[in-house]
Nucleic acid binder design. Sequence first.
DNA 1: AATCAGTGCAACCGCAATTCT
DNA 2: CAGAATTGCGGTTGCACTGAT
Length: 313
Amino acid sequence: MGRTPCCDKANVKKGPWSPEEDTKLKEFIGKHGTGGNWIALPQKAGLNRCGKSCRLRWLNYLRPNIKHGEFSEEEERIICNLFANIGSRWSIIASHLPGRTDNDIKNYWNTKLKKKFLGIVPSQKKQQHQLQLQHHNLFSSLFSLSQGGCNTIAPDLELVTGLGEFPSLFSQRIPGFASTSTSTTATATAASALLQVPYRQPQQMMERSHTTMIAFGNSDPSCNSSGGSCTQISYGTELEYDYDVGRGFEGEQISIGNYATYGGLEYNSRSLRPGGGGHVETPLDYTYEEIKHLLCSNNSGCNTINNDNPSLP
DNA sequence: AATCAGTGCAACCGCAATTCT
DNA sequence: CAGAATTGCGGTTGCACTGAT
């Protein structure tokens, strides 16, 4: 028994939108708004489309003030900072870039930035194979990690941070990583692990967001309240860090949960819109070189990790 | 000129969270 | 409170375009 489909998929049009359909949708929403019901909208608007499809088309293409085309360096920087901090949470990243959609950013990252930071120019075909191997190694190992597959990698994987301005609070031994079951969280976790930013699941972020602002970004290199000493993280526990800009980490907040926290932003809704009156400071400020270095250095680290895993190339 | 491979992007899909009844 | 309906998100796919061979 599956869920009821949002529309009759056999009888709705799929594929690229025609200019006529665009016009219809635009005009309808211009006159009536979305009416708070995307499912009913296509019928009202005289469109033979799924409501989801209409929503996507509107949000990603027809909505006013959508910016298309080249990303500026500033935009790239913001994307990289946020990706480094929170992973592939495209909607959150998009909320920091007015006019850009999550889809746009996701595409841009996947097609341009990822390659850029792994040091490949599109025409460098010679490097392409190497890149693919790097990617494979990198993400395979990280994916294994996030799947709780640490046993296949290294029983005592040591993650050491200390990345430029990023506080080296995670100079810790991590015998295991939070096990996640969906590709989404696995990838996000992997992304976090890639940049050694602890990952926190959205709902847990929300639960916490009402009480604590997590703010990374200070250059204070101290590890925790004990002045740089390392903390052992046990598999399956959640660590939370409160970082007071100017003072460094104020003690160590540990709560019981299933995932490591990732910090930097405060959110107050499911959609993870930035809280606190709509303003959120970019928590980190990586330069291109730092991000690039991050990706590359982690990459080599992952290759090392993979050494004992015959299942990976 | 034809073919092939690579790239970029729009759109789709499935899932989880939230809201509604 | 439970289940259905809806929304929102992130990952993936398909296809058109472009450049190389």
